[in-house]
Simulated assay, not measured.
Amino acid sequence: MQIREAGLKDAPGIAKVHVDNWISTYNDVFPAHVFETWTYENREERWKKSLPKAVSGGTMTYVAEEEGEIAAFALAGTTRDARLRMRYTGEFYGIYVHPDFQRQGLGRKLMESCAEHLASQGHKRAALWVIENNKEQPFFEKMGGEVVYEAPVEIGGNNYKNIAYGWEDVQRLLNHEKLN
């Protein structure tokens, strides 16, 4: 398994992971109509437009590749949410592992790569948003994240909670410390 910086050529693979991960993670949470726009083609076009920004200006996107196939990806950079920015200047924008590759350590490796990037940008603390009932919440807790904020979010006409996890010391992720 190789972890490397993403490039524009990775848009189709990232799109596939993104769609399959979201459907697997939220299929039992969101109403079916939410996934109508979650097609490989739609996400690939979005990634082709956004990927140049997702690898510049302090933001970085990494992919985990297995035999030429994108198995997972993660993004990190400066915190976007003003409510968190005072304390958490860095943000893990998302960690997405294809369902076929979950439970193999890719999420941890990608999170470590993102933490290294955040530290290189001077960020000592970081946060990550997840939508309530995300089945991967225990992973973020195992990685040392603590719930630090909750905010309402509307998706598909329904109200949910957006939960922010915070890491007080990004360096712990870099040192590969055993967490929890």
Rank of each mutant, 00 (worst) to 15 (best):
E116S: 10
N159K: 14
T89W: 13
R85W: 02
T78M: 02
P99A: 11
L110W: 07
R103N: 13
V55D: 02
E168K: 10
T89V: 06
G166E: 05
V130F: 01
N42R: 10
M60N: 13
V29G: 03
G157F: 14
V63T: 03
H123R: 06
G122V: 09
Q2H: 05
F140C: 05
P138S: 11
D28T: 15
G68Y: 09
A32F: 04
Y26C: 04
I14F: 04
R87K: 15
L51W: 07
E5A: 12
L75S: 12
L51F: 11
M86I: 09
E112C: 08
Q171D: 12
K109T: 03
H123A: 09
P138G: 12
M60K: 14
V147T: 12
T25Y: 04
E41Q: 13
V148T: 06
L173W: 14
D20T: 12
A74H: 09
A11M: 01
N159A: 13
V19I: 06
R87M: 09
Q104T: 10
A6C: 04
R83K: 07
N42Q: 11
L110D: 08
W22F: 08
V55M: 13
G13K: 10
L174M: 09
G77L: 03
E146L: 12
I95W: 04
L174Q: 10
